[in-house]
Design a binder for these strands. Structure first.
Length: 601
RNA sequence: GGAGUGGUGGCUCAAUUGGUUAGAGCACCGGCCUGUCACGCCGGAGGUUGCGGGUUCAAGUCCCGUCCACUUCGCCA
């Protein structure tokens, strides 16, 4: 037996016992005669005291210890003494009332000097990743990784209790043209052909419903070959769920229960249920986002009627073209700097706006307002916006005018940017604003491609009341889907839908999406076939586990909750992957690179 | 593919906006210390300022190129 206790276990009640601890040398405080070593394992830290009078050899050896050496210490648990009437208790550590008086020391493994110190925050991401195994030793990382484990446990328990069966689905699967770029794996046994890594187990889980599994879940690794972000990795994990004979409400109840348990585990709080449900268009019109952050106000106000006949040409033209004029009031931000205005304008342009109209409200009197556009407004318009936007001295008003969708995007983004600039979220980190966004549109028109795409995915069921509209293209934009997203504080935790389970409806859906019969047979023949043999009504959801754990851990990047993440470019700096492979390996796969590598050497 | 920020001893950062021998804290090495807990004290070692070029009497600082990292847009549920 290596040890009798872990390093966060000993208390005054253990006094007098002889115990053995194992762990890493956290700190060394060499006083010459007496030496204090804090020994650390994943649970915590315990102070060991080495004195020559207890064991001369151990004391001597203790002088050679350095940070991160792995040691085994045996000794007697003592309550920390009073020295000159002063307590030597350390209330910063849980074991601070005792110490281990060492009688035996074994160095299990010496450590070289580390490339970075574990007791300091490190800004060098590069270095952290290169020595990730050391980075993970730090308490914050270790806590995150263990929280992730606790959360997946909680999810498994929760779903098992509800009768869900965990089923694994293939990692080597088939490329589908829809959605993100696939990772491809050459199939040696079928020269010239490729597997694709799954972007999500979507089709498999529906087929499991046809198979009569009824309640499926999987903590599933998914792959997408797109550019990375702080909250995006090429491989990521979804909590994938599908159930038969359920409606949206059943899914909501299930997921709410699961999330309540998760935040009980991570925050120790009871999240109230049921979560509020917000209509998609209400979210878009009010917050300019389908995953709004509602922890602060500055909601979007429609001013289309006010400016319907405006003397300001830009507004008037937008409205005449079927567009809208809307604005947000950034309360108290009239002090915005020129640089910030520029940044906001950039932001608006990125979201599709032509420019940014604004008013800096500096005083009660309109003559003191600073704005490039206000001179075009008449008295009635000014009174109307004062009233509708609740304008007070010190406010900043930001306008958007264009098509409804564009204005939503623009003002939605500005709203978040302003919140960032003004620190509106400071002190609100503990708020947990969970809700559902429902009644998504089923279809969205892609201007570039000139075709209709599925907003969620092609298997999403239209709302019963809207099914008939599939026959009339002019009504496609108005079809609502039986789809839902669950949101927390402006983050999409997951989304799902009730699916189509009839092959004729599914076939019609494919047609609407511009997938002809031949292509349907080729790419989706198996699922259409399956639906012909008695597919039960079913639906499900997928939650992004990485993001969920990130939020539960209070981190800002999913890399902080993934043991071995990839960097911006999809590289693993520790193992130096991806890497070149031997020519022979490629030959066996019938592959030849076309990369021009004259830049090398 | 575009944009932004950054790259200075092992780590975190500084260096008067172009001017002496590139500094400090931590870590490291040596010494001292029997109650420390971010221990303390004395001493020491450690640098091709990411790389390449240019401007200049003089470049960590300015210019061009390039590489790397992070953030972001495009892309991506």
């Amino acid at each position: 037996m290596y040890r009798t206790h872990h390093c966060n276990e000993l208390r005054q009640s253990h006094a007098g016992e002889t115990v053995t601890l194992c762990g890493w040398v956290n700190t060394v405080r060499d006083q010459g005669g007496v030496i204090f070593i804090d020994i650390r394992d994943r649970e915590g830290v315990t102070q060991c005291v080495f004195r020559a009078e207890e064991n001369e050899e151990a004391n001597k050896l203790s002088h050679t210890l350095r940070g991160e050496d792995v040691i085994q210490v045996t000794g007697r648990v003592d309550v920390r003494p009073e020295i000159d009437g002063q307590s030597t208790f350390n209330d910063k550590i849980d074991t601070g009332e005792v110490e281990l008086v060492a009688t035996e020391l074994t160095v299990l493994n010496k450590a070289e000097v580390l490339p970075f110190q574990l007791d300091k925050e490190l800004s060098n991401e590069d270095l952290r990743m290169k020595h990730r195994y050391l980075d993970l030793r730090r308490p914050r990382m270790s806590k995150n990784i263990r929280l992730r484990g606790d959360i997946t446990n909680s999810i498994r328990n929760n779903l098992a209790e509800q009768g869900f069966t965990e089923v694994e689905t293939p990692i080597l699967s088939k490329s589908t043209p829809e959605g993100a770029r696939d990772f491809l794996v050459p199939a040696r046994l079928s020269p010239g052909k490729f597997y694709a890594l799954p972007q999500a187990p979507q089709q498999y889980k529906q087929l499991l419903m046809v198979a009569g599994v009824e309640r499926y879940f999987q903590i599933a690794r998914c792959f997408r070959d797109e550019d990375l972000r702080a909250d995006r990795q090429p491989e990521f994990t979804q909590v994938d769920i599908e159930a038969s004979f359920v409606n949206s409400d059943d899914i909501f109840t299930l997921i709410e229960g699961m999330l309540v348990d998760i935040f009980k585990v991570s925050h120790g709080v009871d999240v109230p249920t049921p979560f509020e449900r917000v209509d998609y268009w209400h979210a878009m019109d009010t917050y300019g986002s389908d995953k709004p952050d509602r922890r602060f106000g500055s909601e979007i106000v429609d001013l289309t009627e006010v400016f319907a006949d405006s003397g300001f040409g830009v507004f008037k033209k937008a409205i005449e073209g079927g567009g809208v004029v809307r604005a947000i009031n950034a309360k108290g931000f009239a002090s915005v700097s020129t640089g910030q205005v520029k940044r906001l304008e950039e932001c608006a342009k990125e979201a599709g706006a032509g420019g940014l109209a604004y008013i800096q409200v500096r005083g009660e009197d309109v003559s003191k307002w600073r704005s490039p556009i206000i001179k075009f407004f008449n008295e009635t318009e000014l009174e109307a916006i004062k009233d509708k936007l609740d304008i007070e001295d010190g406010d900043l008003i930001l306008f958007g005018c264009d098509k409804r969708q564009t204005v939503c995007d623009v003002l939605g983004r500005l709203r978040l940017e302003v919140a960032e600039m003004c620190g509106w979220l400071e002190g609100k980190e503990d708020i947990l604003d969970f809700f559902w966004v429902v009644d998504f549109p089923l279809l969205g028109y892609d201007e570039e491609e000139g075709k209709w795409n599925a907003v969620h995915h092609p298997f999403t069921r239209p709302k019963a009341d809207d099914v008939a509209k599939l026959d009339d293209e002019s009504q496609w934009a108005d079809i609502r889907a039986e789809a839902y997203d669950v949101i927390l504080n402006g983050n999409e935790l997951g989304g799902g839908s009730i699916r189509i389970h009839e092959s004729d409806l599914q076939s019609k859906m494919f047609s609407v999406l511009g997938i002809d019969e031949e292509e349907q047979a080729e790419n989706f023949g198996h699922i259409l076939g399956a639906f012909a043999y008695g597919a039960p009504p079913h639906g499900g959801i997928a939650l992004g586990l990485d993001r969920l754990v990130m939020l539960a851990a209070g981190e800002e990047s999913i890399r902080e909750v993934i043991a071995f993440p990839k960097n911006n470019k999809g590289n693993d700096l520790m193992s130096a992957s991806p890497a070149e492979v031997d020519f022979k390996q490629l030959r066996e796969l019938y592959l030849k690179s076309t990369v021009d590598d004259k830049k090398k050497s």
